[in-house]
């Protein structure tokens, strides 16, 4: 459904991604794992359009989209939940959700989507008239996910949803993301520093180091691999 072919990407003179290729099937949930600065977020930026590759292709449903702007990719069905949530904090919860459905296609189905989003996140519904900044960290992350869902995405990109949250809330958030993936067959790509957590919820993982993909396997295989244990799970 979505694939990257031989992507190179730069920030000014600094090369962040080297010959990266990956793919995701429809309905699959995939994690990109790696340490700080390995290029995880850059990879999501390539997919969402905030960073343009200097070489290589991004193919979505058979169409090359590497030159498309972020807002056009939202329209196509690729929605990013940015790192650090990036809510519109002076606006109300409802306004944030309405903004999520800003694209033409999503606007038509706004009310239905809203109903459904409230079912997934009942906590959000209780707070629709509060400004986003008054929510707790966990609720803000839920709102960020809900806002992304409002655009009716086909692919959901989740960047570090665990950032700054208590462990028990992180669990809830990832369970919800998994639930969205299972019940709707929604394709999801997550980027996560907490490798164990990520591998417990996804089907497959890519390991990225210094801007290169160094390994890929099913989640279970990765969890049991000696290299991964040593490098990321602080075991062995």
């Amino acid at each position: 459904m979505l694939s990257l072919e031989n992507i190179d990407a730069y920030y000014m003179d600094f090369q962040a991604l080297w010959d990266v290729s990956m793919y995701v099937e429809k309905g699959e949930m995939v994690a990109i794992i790696g340490s700080n600065g390995a290029g995880k977020s850059s990879l999501l930026k390539i997919i969402s359009g905030f960073l343009k590759p200097t070489k290589g292709k991004v193919i979505f449903n058979g169409i090359e989209i590497q030159h498309a702007e972020p807002q056009d990719r939202v329209e196509m069905g690729i929605s990013l939940i940015p790192e650090g949530r990036r809510l519109f904090s002076d606006m109300t919860v409802l306004e944030n959700l309405e903004l999520g459905a800003y694209t033409k296609k999503a606007r038509k189905e706004k009310d239905i989507t809203l109903e459904w989003v409230f079912q997934v996140f009942p906590r959000i519904k209780e707070r629709i008239n509060q400004t986003a900044r008054t929510l707790s960290g966990g609720e803000q992350q839920m709102l960020a996910i809900a806002r992304a869902l409002m655009s009716r995405p086909k692919v959901l990109l989740v960047d570090e949803a665990s950032l700054g949250l208590a462990p028990i809330i992180i669990q809830t958030i990832y369970k919800t993301i998994q639930e969205i993936n299972r019940s709707l067959q929604m394709t999801i790509i997550i980027v996560e520093q907490n490798v164990r957590l990520a591998l417990e919820v996804v089907n497959r993982g890519y390991i990225i180091e210094n801007g290169r993909i160094v390994g890929t396997d099913t989640a279970d295989a990765l969890l049991n691999s000696e290299d991964v244990k040593k490098a990321y799970l602080a075991l062995g």
Partner: peptide, 21 residues
Amino acid sequence: GLAMKCIRDDEEAASATGINV
């Protein structure tokens, strides 16, 4: 107006929600 306020608050998040900044 809503789109304008979004751009003011966070340009990148505005694009991420599908607004043509």
